[in-house]
């Protein structure tokens, strides 16, 4: 069983003037895959908690034990006692603390925590097209129709490859906006999205892109 697939496209059209193009690497959810994903989530939670505990132990060993009797410090003292009582995670934390100096342990834990929070098994990116309003990328960027100069397909070098990608040319900006920048789906998907976007945005029928310059010109991209 595979956790990811090659990027595939899902198109949702809630109304004739709206279209959402989602590129995702999530394979179809079978029960076994659900179980696997759940266990991965559990594992991540446990790992994160362990890292938090290590960080807490580190902090507690540096600062003096709470002495005042305010409710907050009482709570902290209880918590401290509960956490430092000999349970396996606490033993691991104090073992690590005894063997690795704090200045190395703290950034490593923080980094691992950040990676655990950010890492995702699947990725999905989407493009929402609203006729008359504009397009919104999954990065949260909204580009109003008036500022879209063109939507086109281009090719570029990336590492050891040539990749096809979809860009939105925005009026008054030097850089173009790349759609699906992380997943960079293949040419077939890019082309379908490109057609869909133009159809939805400019009401171009099937004939618009077929050559006779319907609507707007395509500069630099290809014309099929």
């Amino acid at each position: 069983m595979r956790l990811t697939t090659t990027p595939y496209l899902r198109i949702r059209r809630p109304s004739p003037t709206t279209a959402e193009f989602t590129v995702s690497t999530l394979p179809p959810l079978t029960p076994s895959l659900r179980m696997l994903l759940l266990s991965i989530t559990l594992l991540r939670t446990v790992l994160s908690l362990q890292l938090v505990l290590i960080l807490y132990t580190l902090w507690a060993s540096r600062s003096s034990p709470p002495s005042s009797s305010s409710p907050l410090s009482l709570l902290l003292a209880h918590l401290h006692h509960a956490l430092t009582s000999p349970s396996p995670p606490a033993r691991l934390a104090s073992y690590l603390l005894a063997h690795i100096p704090g200045y190395a342990l703290a950034p490593a834990c923080a980094g691992a925590l950040y990676a655990l929070a950010r890492a995702r098994v699947h990725d999905a990116e989407s493009l929402l097209v609203l006729r008359g309003l504009g397009v919104q990328t999954s990065g949260g960027r909204f580009i109003p129709t008036g500022k879209i100069r063109d939507v086109l397909v281009n090719e570029a070098f990336r590492g050891f490859e040539v990749r096809t990608y979809l860009v939105v040319v925005v009026d008054g900006e030097d850089d173009v906006v790349v759609v699906f920048p992380r997943l960079l789906p293949g040419a077939r998907i890019v082309e379908r999205v490109w057609r869909g976007v133009r159809e939805c945005l400019y009401e171009e029928g099937k004939r618009g892109w077929e050559g006779e310059g319907g609507g707007r010109g395509i500069e630099g991209g290809w014309r099929c």
Binding site: E155, E161, V162, T164, G186, A187, R188, W222, C224
Partner: peptide, 8 residues
């Protein structure tokens, strides 16, 4: 896995 580019 390498896409074919469209021809002019």
């Amino acid at each position: 896995q390498i896409d074919f580019a469209r021809d002019w």
